[in-house]
Simulated scan of single mutants.
Amino acid sequence: MKILLATALLLLASTAHACINEVGTDRSGRRFAPDWYLGDDFTEPMRKRDGREYALKRATETIAAARKQPSFASLTNLGVLLIYQGQYPLAIRHFLSLERRYPGHHETAANLGTALELAGQDHVALRWIRLGIQRNANEHLRTEWLHARILQAKIAAAREPDYLQRHSIAGLRFEAKPAPALPAVMPAGNDGQPVKPWELDRSLSYQLMERTQFVPAPDPVVANLLSDWATLNLAGGPLENADALYELAVDYGAPRDALMRERQAYIRKTIARAQEPEDATGDYSCAICWPRGQ
């Protein structure tokens, strides 16, 4: 999904090293500073859907700007507002008009794909999302490959009702253990090459921060993605985030099965027994943490 506010949130995340230094716990019980929010603070924007509320509060300003100077940027923002307002047919017409007026923009393709998906037209949405990637391989900080996989999964689930119970939308396979390792095989990104663990984390973060603004709980697609994101954090990130993401996944409809209970028990036991180091910012690192400057 292509929403300008979520882009701002991701830009904030990339510069958070200067101000956020909460201390987390890795799967071995070591403390480290992932340079970002942890636990419930980490999932709060998705629970509260803050991005949507912010956009709706700025509706008058957005409309006025588009009327005063109908540029590509202001008209794009107006179309995004229509999506936030739930006016999907109008948003589709708006972005088709924008494509005719300013042809070839990857932003338009991604926004149109989002509006079409929310209107229930997944097949057409997938074509526009793929077109957006073709127009700009860096689309959505190179995370739009996951949006395409989401649409493919939704199309498959329309044919096979139990598809999402048997498949990982992100294409991940974790060991069925309380503390699994990172997947041996990573999915292909925007450029067709396997993503790195930190790129996978960024893709799940970007796409879910946006999707949860539009899709309230329960929702099987979001539940599937959150479950994988939680396990990714368990395998290579802060355990505090893994636990909070599992809880949010359950809220979205993921079953709290025996394996999830085992994993959460492992998480909580490991956090409780973790030793406080003299310097949590030392040489510790996490496999999925975003490199500085990315």
Rank of each mutant, 00 (worst) to 15 (best):
E247G: 06
T281K: 14
E247V: 08
P255T: 04
L245D: 01
A230Q: 04
T281G: 10
T231C: 03
D243K: 14
P238Q: 04
P238V: 00
A258K: 04
D257S: 00
Y284D: 08
R261Y: 09
M260V: 09
A235Q: 05
V250C: 03
C286Y: 09
A265Q: 11
L239C: 01
N241V: 02
P238Y: 02
R261D: 02
A258E: 07
T270I: 15
D283T: 12
A242Y: 10
M260H: 07
Q275F: 15
G237H: 14
D251I: 11
D279C: 08
A272Q: 14
Q275E: 15
V250I: 12
D257P: 05
E276V: 15
Q264F: 06
C286F: 12
A258M: 04
Y246K: 10
I271R: 11
A272H: 12
L232Q: 03
E240M: 00
L234F: 05
Y246S: 03
T270N: 15
T281E: 14
A230G: 00
E240F: 03
L245A: 11
P277T: 02
Y246I: 08
T270F: 11
A235L: 05
T231P: 06
Y266V: 12
G237M: 10
A287F: 13
P255C: 01
E278P: 13
C286H: 08
A280C: 03
A235G: 09
R256A: 11
T270R: 13
N233S: 09
D243R: 08
E240W: 02
A249C: 02
Q264A: 04
R256V: 09
A254F: 13
D257E: 00
G236C: 11
Y266K: 14
P255W: 03
G253C: 03
S285I: 14
A230L: 03
A230N: 01
K269M: 13
Y252E: 00
Q275Y: 14
V250A: 00
D257H: 04
D251H: 10
N241T: 06
A230K: 00
P255N: 01
A272M: 14
E262I: 00
A242P: 07
A242V: 13
R268H: 05
A272P: 14
A265S: 07
Y284V: 10
Q264W: 00
R273Q: 15
W229C: 11
W229F: 15
D257R: 06
E262D: 03
Q264L: 02
D251C: 07
V250D: 05
P277G: 03
R263V: 13
L259C: 01
G253M: 04
